[in-house]
């Protein structure tokens, strides 16, 4: 009980500090601007492509409905390239204005880097100048770690909500047939997906921050870890796709190379599951990110507990 009280105290103090910190405000602004830029660019490109396709089909005197079919095919192709070839996922995503999944995917790709910039010094920034010593005699080290992690997670999850709301509002603006009945649950689903995704990366940042006394080293190691995860995911996906193509060329059932399974060691491997309409796949995604978050935090706690401050 005392531990929970400590966590709540640290969380609220760190959160107040974070929202007043110039660095956090600047980073929030930059990420918001980046998301807005991606949003407007994707919106502009899709509208231009649609207009060009309509013009071409009209010139060719294409039959009625050909434009819609061509747009739907292009959307499916883009979404399967960005997400997965899973039919039910593509069907669910294709009900939404294209700008939503595309911008969501772009912002999600850069989110881990943003999280690293935001929180790389949450612990190391207190270990280096030894200000953590004032906390360490008043609170358990586990409370310090969890309280700071929760404060960072709150900032990130709050920011994601604002950005997702803006994306959906913009999509509603450019697609008047995007009904509120679909908008509200989709917004909730996308927000939960991004929140769960980002929390795992906040936990990774907390771990990297607990590892070192120098904030710069924490940041470098954090980016190195992100790079390693990205390579693992890319290599695993490549091996999987190569095997699938080989099987298709030979007219055989696609095989699952064991090495391709390595991609499941990367948190990003489960990001698509978070948007899956099937509850089982959604649950796997949530469970995987919860497991990554827990593993990073437990490791961070073990390091902080054992280390000298």
């Amino acid at each position: 009980m005392e531990g929970i009280r400590e966590i709540a105290t640290i969380w609220s103090a760190e959160l107040r500090r974070a929202v007043r910190s110039p660095r956090v405000i600047i980073l929030l602004g930059l990420y918001g601007l980046f998301s807005a830029l991606a949003l407007f660019l994707v919106g502009w490109i899709t509208s231009r492509v649609s207009a060009a396709a309509a013009e071409q089909l009209n010139a060719q005197s294409a039959p009625e409905g050909a434009l819609d079919q061509a747009a739907a095919n292009a959307k499916q192709a883009l979404l399967s390239g960005l997400f997965d070839k899973d039919a039910s996922l593509l069907e669910a995503l294709s009900k939404l204005p294209l700008v939503i999944p595309v911008v969501f995917k772009i912002t999600l790709f850069f989110l881990p880097a943003y999280v690293a910039f935001l929180g790389f010094d949450q612990l190391s920034g207190e270990i280096e100048p030894k200000s953590i010593r004032y906390l360490a005699i008043r609170a358990r080290r586990s409370s310090i770690l969890v309280g700071k992690f929760l404060a960072q997670a709150t900032v990130v999850v709050g920011m994601i909500l604002v950005i997702d709301a803006v994306i959906f509002a913009y999509a509603r603006l450019i697609s008047p047939d995007f009904a509120f009945g679909l908008l509200a649950p989709s917004l909730l689903r996308f927000w939960i997906a991004a929140a769960v995704f980002s929390v795992a990366y906040v936990a990774l940042t907390t771990l990297c921050s607990a590892l070192f006394a120098l904030p710069a080293v924490s940041l470098i190691v954090n980016f190195f870890a992100l790079f390693v995860f990205w390579v693992i995911q890319a290599v695993g996906s490549y091996l999987q796709d190569a095997a699938a193509m080989q099987a298709a060329a030979a007219g055989e059932e696609p095989s699952r190379p064991v090495l391709a399974l390595v991609r499941f060691l990367s948190p990003s491997a489960y990001s698509t599951d978070l948007l899956h309409p099937e509850w089982a796949r959604f649950g796997i995604g949530i469970g995987a990110y919860a497991a990554f978050s827990a593993a990073f935090l437990v490791l961070g706690w073990a390091i902080l507990r054992a280390r000298d401050v």
């Binding site: 105290t9 910190s21 030894k130 200000s131 010593r133 004032y134 906390l135 008043r138 609170a139």
Partner: peptide, 27 residues
């Protein structure tokens, strides 16, 4: 109670808020 020799104070916080925070954390 400890007066550490070379521990810096955290940034972006006033003395009053800092001491109140530490007092709260001390229970």
């Amino acid at each position: 109670g400890v007066l550490p020799q070379d521990a810096a104070f955290p940034a972006s916080i006033t003395v009053g808020a800092l001491l109140t925070y530490w007092a709260r954390l001390s229970g």
